[in-house]
């Protein structure tokens, strides 16, 4: 199983960063070339990449633009665009380890290799607790990690079917997760975000697996909008809700700024329908408290 474009959606080759344009998936695998900080910021603000992709974009930008800007200053600029994500923690890792004598390139290489090793480890642990016939609901995209999870389940001779919530307005569930599962010949069904309660009631789902953008030491999380609703409903139907997260911090997540994007993005993909004059809201993340989470699998 080697169709894993979303595991490493951003790459550094020579003096350029290549970003897999997620907005063009599933119909085109197109890579945007980035040579300037402004290009990197533009790629980030226009949602060409997110999740682990934005982590890689930050790390590779720190290397490529090392002479122009420090990781700390770079993190400030990234944070201005994506206030909900913790770029500062990444910059601390880079600055602390370069102070210890390693080059930025070595630090980034070690970080990515270690991160991937830990991603495999946590999916292995998660696979051990999932049912033998896992009917897994998921939302948004966990940067290829569901493929790792499937591989681990298979090693344990466990079956898995994925139920992918489409994840409006950007349709990351449809365009990214459903696509990557299907191109790896993994059984998956697509559903509208609002169908989750019905499918839980009908026992078509017996567990939930999601990623998270941020988490704290109490195991509360911030993740793509729609996650909280699924967690509440899963608790009601006594369905375990599992989270894959990283670098939890001692913070109150209710104090983290939740990015509210331009209302026009809510009407994304609806260009053939009249929407002018309509106001809209677009909080792009939501908060799920630990009381609704069965267990988190962390990378620290």
């Amino acid at each position: 199983m080697n169709n894993h474009s979303l595991l490493y959606p951003v790459k550094l080759k020579g003096n350029s960063i290549f970003v897999l344009d997620e907005t063009k998936l599933p119909f085109k695998e197109y890579h945007i070339k980035v040579n300037k900080i402004s290009q990197a910021l533009r790629v980030l603000s226009s949602m060409k990449t997110r999740a682990f992709g934005q982590v890689l974009l930050f790390l590779y930008s720190a290397i490529l633009f090392e002479k122009e800007i420090s990781p700390k200053e770079l993190a400030k600029r990234f944070k201005k665009i994506r206030p909900t994500f913790d770029f500062e923690s990444l910059s601390y890792i880079l600055e602390n380890q370069t102070k210890a004598g390693l080059s930025l390139k070595e630090v980034v290489k070690n970080f990515i290799e270690s991160f991937d090793r830990k991603r495999r480890e946590r999916t292995k642990k998660l696979a051990e607790v999932l049912p033998f016939n896992s009917k897994i609901l998921t939302i948004c995209n966990v940067s290829g990690e569901l493929i790792y999870l499937y591989e681990e389940l298979k090693k344990l001779k466990k079956r898995a079917i994925f139920y992918v919530s489409e994840t409006r307005p950007y349709l990351q569930g449809t365009r990214l997760t459903f696509w990557e599962l299907r191109r790896n010949n993994i059984k998956a069904y697509l559903l509208c975000d609002n169908q989750v309660a019905y499918l839980m009631q009908k026992k078509e789902i017996n567990c939930v697996v999601v990623g998270s953008d941020r988490s704290n030491l109490k195991n509360d999380i911030i993740n793509k909008i729609g996650t909280y609703a699924i967690a509440r409903l899963a608790k009601y139907f006594k369905i375990p809700f599992y989270v894959l997260t990283q670098y939890p911090k001692d913070i109150d997540l209710d104090l983290v700024k939740i990015e509210e994007r331009n209302k026009n993005e809510v009407f994304m993909f609806l260009e053939n329908i009249k929407t002018s004059g309509y106001d809209a809201i677009y909080p792009s993340f939501d908060i799920t408290k630990s009381e609704f989470i069965e267990k988190t699998y962390e990378i620290r």
Binding site: I139, S165, T167, R168, P169, C192, D193, N194, I225, G226, T227, Y228, A229, I230, R232, V266, T275, Y278, D279, A280, I281, Y282, P283, D286, I287
Partner: peptide
């Protein structure tokens, strides 16, 4: 005001 269905949870929260 218009929203996608998956935003309702957060509005309740």
């Amino acid at each position: 005001v218009y929203c996608t269905d998956n935003m309702l949870g957060f509005l309740f929260y």
